[in-house]
Simulated scan of single mutants.
Amino acid sequence: MNKLSDDDIEKKLLRFPDWEYYENALHGEFEFENFKDCFSAMSRIAFECEALNHHPNWSNTYNVLTISLSTHDADGVTNKDFLLAEAIENIVEPDEE
Rank of each mutant, 00 (worst) to 15 (best):
N2S: 14
N2Q: 14
L4K: 13
L4D: 10
D6S: 14
D6E: 15
D7C: 04
D8A: 14
I9Q: 08
K11F: 10
L13T: 05
L14N: 13
W19Y: 10
Y21V: 04
Y21R: 05
Y21N: 05
Y22W: 07
L26F: 06
H27P: 01
H27C: 11
F30Y: 11
E31P: 02
D37G: 07
D37A: 14
C38F: 06
C38N: 12
S40E: 11
A41F: 05
A41K: 02
M42T: 06
M42L: 14
R44T: 11
I45F: 04
I45E: 05
A46T: 09
A46H: 05
F47V: 13
F47Y: 12
E48A: 14
C49R: 01
C49E: 11
E50H: 12
A51G: 10
N53Y: 03
H54G: 02
H55A: 07
H55Y: 12
S59G: 13
L65Y: 12
L65V: 10
I67T: 07
S68C: 13
S68G: 13
S68R: 15
S70N: 15
T71S: 15
T71Q: 09
H72C: 07
A74W: 04
A74T: 09
D75I: 01
V77W: 06
D81N: 08
F82H: 05
L83M: 13
L83W: 03
L84M: 05
A85H: 08
E86N: 13
E86Q: 15
A87T: 05
I88R: 03
E89L: 01
N90V: 00
I91F: 10
V92I: 13
E93R: 15
P94G: 07
E97Y: 11
E97K: 13
